[in-house]
Amino acid sequence: MTTPDRYISRLRLTSFRNYTSAALDLDHRHVVLVGENGAGKTNLIEAVSLLSPGRGLRRAPFESLALSGSDGMWAVAATVETPFGPADMGTGATTDTAAARRVRINGANARSVEEMSDYLRVLWLIPAMDGIFSGPAADRRRFLDRLVTTLIPGHSAAVGDFEKAMRQRNRLLEENGDPAWLSAIETQMAETASAIHFARADSLAHLQGVMAANVADTGFPEALLELSPLFEDSVPGTASALEAELVGRWKTARALDKAAGRTTFGPHRVDLAVTHKDKAMPAGLCSTGEQKALLIGLVLVHARLVAQMTGITPLLLLDEIAAHLDPRRRAALFDALDKLRTQCWMTGTDPVLFADLGARAQRFAVDAGQLARMPG
Rank of each mutant, 00 (worst) to 15 (best):
Q188F: 10
R141M: 06
P61M: 12
G219C: 09
T91V: 14
I196Y: 02
V80P: 02
G85R: 07
L123Y: 01
D145E: 08
T20Q: 10
G54Y: 00
R269L: 09
L173E: 02
E243N: 07
L26S: 02
A336N: 05
I126W: 06
V274T: 13
A355N: 08
S52W: 04
R55F: 05
D217R: 15
A255M: 12
R58N: 12
A98T: 11
S68K: 15
R328P: 06
S68H: 15
D139M: 11
R101K: 12
N214C: 11
A223N: 02
S21A: 14
T264D: 07
N176T: 07
N18G: 00
N106K: 06
F62W: 08
D27W: 05
P282A: 02
A184T: 11
E290P: 00
T313Y: 07
P83H: 04
E174M: 12
D71I: 14
I296C: 00
Q308C: 12
S203Y: 07
Q308V: 14
D25G: 11
L182Q: 10
M129K: 08
K164R: 14
A158M: 04
T349L: 04
P86L: 01
V210Y: 13
H206Q: 13
L272E: 01
S15Q: 15
A223F: 00
A336E: 03
V301P: 00
K277F: 13
P351S: 07
D350C: 08
A293V: 04
Q208W: 12
G131R: 14
T79E: 11
N37D: 07
T150L: 05
L340Y: 07
E290H: 02
D202L: 14
L317R: 03
L325W: 01
H206V: 10
T218I: 05
L295C: 03
D71P: 13
T252N: 08
E46I: 03
L207R: 05
A108Q: 09
V299G: 01
R140G: 03
S49M: 06
E115L: 13
G56P: 02
V80L: 04
T275M: 11
A99N: 07
T149H: 00
A372E: 06
Q168N: 09
L172M: 11
A190F: 02
G348A: 05
Q168K: 10
E226D: 11
G35D: 00
G358D: 00
F334P: 01
A100C: 06
T275Q: 10
A78E: 03
D145T: 05
A195W: 13
T14E: 11
L227K: 00
S287K: 09
A244E: 12
L298W: 02
D71Q: 13
A205I: 15
F16T: 04
L325C: 10
L227V: 09
E174N: 11
R102C: 08
M309Y: 14
L300S: 00
D178S: 15
A216D: 10
P221L: 08
L318Q: 01
R269P: 09
V301C: 09
L147I: 12
I321G: 01
V34R: 00
Q188N: 10
L315A: 07
A193L: 06
E163F: 05
D319V: 03
L151Q: 01
F62N: 01
A60P: 14
V247R: 09
H268C: 11
K339T: 15
T149P: 03
H30D: 02
A195D: 14
E63M: 10
G348H: 04
T310P: 02
R146D: 06
L298S: 00
K164T: 13
P86W: 02
V215D: 04
H28Y: 12
S194L: 08
